[in-house]
């Protein structure tokens, strides 16, 4: 088990390094200049700034500088999006609200998604299944920008139940949480629907399998067979779905951030990419990549926990 984990970590680290290298070169091969200084600025000033950031030197030398800094865990300074602020601080100051939002929406997604999924699988092909399938698909099929805008218009503007945008408070207070409800819901619908759908499909398949018959035969109640055997087996693919859901939500809430005025990481990332703030873009991409790899390892491990047939560290092929 330990050996397997170490193997995975080493593999993940290699991937990480390659990603960093690839992203560096992709970014620096992008058209457009890093310094979009106003043409009014004198050439001497321009040279000065170029020299400071080694922009005059060949790409490979710049790469050397960047890697040297990264080895010292120095991720550089943001150039344009937050001038003078260390990249890691930029990421950290944007992170709390992004994580809070995702965290809360995950709390909403998991139970609801699972309950719906189980119910739909159990009542497969009944009217309940059809109706809830339709609702679920409706929820995923309305793009989040439409759903979010609709919610904001109806719940926030017309009915005035919720504040239109995220309350500006430095810490997570009740008022702030209250204003987070709409973005949380907007984020959750898609997740609930996709979990419910995956679970329904998996479970419907598991329920037709022979061992379910056996379980019934050995005298387990319906509830027991459902929870012990069916759910357990359906969770195998779901474990990774859920973990990736975290990651997916973490990176794709840009639309919702825009509509509800949430100061999240995606907004910064867009600004960094569009503004050619390469150091910051690198920092954010590295961060996402790190989380992604971490989640992947977790997902792998969780397979072993939820699926009795998978054991870690065994021979791969046999």
């Amino acid at each position: 088990m330990l050996k397997y984990i170490i193997q995975r970590i080493i593999a993940a680290f290699c991937t990480f390094v390659v990603v960093v290298v690839v992203v560096f070169f992709v970014l620096h091969f992008m058209p457009g200049e890093i310094l979009d200084l106003s043409p009014k600025i004198d050439r001497s000033v321009r040279e000065l700034i170029m020299a400071k950031y080694h922009l005059n030197e060949p790409l490979i030398v710049q790469f050397g500088y960047t890697m040297r800094d990264y080895l010292r865990l120095d991720f550089g300074y943001s150039l344009k999006v937050r001038p003078g602020v260390p990249v890691m601080n930029v990421v950290l100051e944007r992170l709390p609200v992004t994580i809070q939002l995702n965290y809360f929406s995950a709390i909403v997604i998991l139970p609801f998604g699972m309950i719906f999924g189980i119910l739909m699988a159990v009542k497969k092909d009944t009217i309940f299944d059809h109706i809830s399938s339709t609702i679920v698909i409706l929820l995923i099929s309305v793009p989040s920008f439409v759903l979010a805008a609709l919610m904001q218009y109806i719940l926030g503007f017309k009915l005035e139940w919720f504040p239109l945008i995220l309350e500006a408070e430095p810490h997570l207070t009740w008022t702030k949480f209250y204003s987070m409800i709409m973005p949380i819901l907007a984020l959750s619908f898609g997740g609930i629907a996709s979990i419910a759908r995956t679970l329904r499909a998996e479970m419907a398949e598991v329920l037709t399998m022979d061992f379910m018959m056996l379980a019934k035969a050995k005298g387990l109640t319906y509830r027991q067979t459902l929870l012990r055997h069916a759910l357990r087996n359906s969770c195998v693919p779901l474990a990774s779905t859920f973990l990736y859901l975290f990651l997916g939500v973490l990176s794709s809430s840009l639309v919702i951030e825009q509509i509800f005025g949430v100061p999240g990481l995606s907004k910064t990332m867009m600004a960094a990419i569009n503004g050619h703030d390469h150091w910051l873009t690198m920092g954010i991409v590295i961060f996402y990549c790190f989380i992604g790899l971490f989640m992947a390892i977790l997902a792998d491990l969780s397979y072993g926990v939820v699926d009795p047939r998978i054991r870690m560290g065994g021979k791969k092929d046999e």
Binding site: A11, V22, P31, I273, C289, G292
Partner: peptide
């Protein structure tokens, strides 16, 4: 696949479209 998979998709898409 791991490498490509772990580059976040949104920036990747934006970069592609820029290119």
């Amino acid at each position: 696949m791991d490498v490509v998979w772990n580059i976040p998709s949104l920036p990747l898409t934006i970069l592609l479209i820029m290119l």
